[in-house]
Design a binder for these strands. Structure first.
Lengths: 212, 212
DNA sequence: ATAAACTTGCTTGTCACTAACAAGTTATTT
DNA sequence: AAATAACTTGTTAGTGACAAGCAAGTTTAT
């Protein structure tokens, strides 16, 4: 499920129902991402999404059911696009190498697609809210990511390149916590030096893992 | 500016204007904290705050000007209460000891006042939004906290107990990032083991700092 | 093959609720 | 008692959500 529209997105050509729906959803998701980046959650109204994407004011509500449903869909799409990118760069590697590649890919992705990362953190931030309907969504994604990281670490331990006294699960939490915290500060503080923070984090984290 | 009301908060007694205003603000802030913990940002309406705190539906708007003004006030109050607590525990210490005390105090505070920490992270989460009016508020608080942490680290370097090749500013970012990330995961994942994550973080962070 | 019957996608109408402002009322101060 | 500050009530534009209707696409019967 790619995030962008097909290259030739010509209007006024016949489509099957499935294509029509997919096209409408993608266009609305893209409109919502653009709106979230400029006018935030409050400003991203269901009416504005429908109209900005070339449909009626009612379609977003009809299609996503609710504003929370829309955000849930966006998070799923963004997570999917990120997973594809990461796996492409990883190529099945594990251990220290996987950790380093993952951190590098995180930074590169944040610099290449800041509008995606920004939306991801806007929505993750909103997911903390007790009434957030897409909290399970965010929690599940993090859970899966943590388990992936833990498996890399376990692989490194098995191969002897990562210290044996490290707990993969807890360490994956530290890994993800570090990334979340760095990105959070970046989003809030306009002059935050993201590359420097990533470099520091990578150096410290790898040094902590490495077997002596 | 304490977060709670004075011990004897008797009704129907004469007050000065300043007392009246302060009492109203504190009662509304407490009502808002309770509402944020249960029904979230959307559910925390200005009408509900006024009525829950024993006033009219219009007072919250009148007093805070806007919903963002209310949240800004809450963040200022929470930050103030936290700073007092931290300085009480620190007693002017710096270096490795200060870092360890600060992390311990963070955990203890989160366990003792989860409703305060929760609101802090709900609002910090909302501060990521591009349209957030209290983003400067959150950014300033983090900035000050980072500078404080950097000064502890500098003190430790001067005394030779912290490695000299460490950059205090960048390391303070890593410190705060770690804490933010841990708390974020705790807020989103109900079964997250906060004490274990704090223990891990403290061990790794201190080991990274310590001069060999 | 084609047209009617049906299904699904999309639009318009409507309603309860909210933030915000303005104007009025009550409490404190001088 | 006049003036000022705190608080309340009246009102409005705008939002999310739902319901009913319309149009495009798909299936089935002849």
């Amino acid at each position: 499920m790619p995030l962008s529209l097909p290259a030739s997105d010509d209007d006024s050509q016949s489509r099957t129902q499935a294509e029509r729906t997919a096209r409408a959803e993608t266009r609305m998701v893209l409109a919502a991402i653009a709106l979230l980046n400029t006018v935030g959650i409050q400003g991203t109204t269901l009416v504005a999404i429908g109209e900005k994407s070339g449909y009626s004011r009612g379609l977003a509500t009809h299609h996503f059911g609710s504003k929370a449903g829309l955000f849930s869909t966006i998070l799923r799409r963004l997570s999917g696009a990120w997973s594809i990118e990461l796996n492409r760069k990883l190529g099945g590697k594990t251990g220290l190498e996987a950790v380093e590649i993952a951190i590098n890919t995180h930074l590169a992705y944040a610099l290449k697609h800041p509008e995606y990362i920004r939306v991801q953190y806007i929505l993750w931030g909103a997911a903390i809210d007790p009434a957030s309907a897409f909290k399970p969504n965010a929690a599940e994604f993090m859970q899966i990511q943590r388990e992936t990281v833990a498996s890399w670490i376990q692989g490194g331990i098995d191969r002897g390149e990562i210290r044996a006294d490290i707990h993969p699960g807890h360490t994956a939490e530290q890994y993800y916590g570090g990334l979340i915290g760095i990105n959070h500060q970046w989003q809030v503080s306009p002059d935050f030096d993201l590359p420097a923070a990533y470099a520091d984090f990578k150096r410290n984290f790898v040094r902590m893992l490495r077997a002596t």
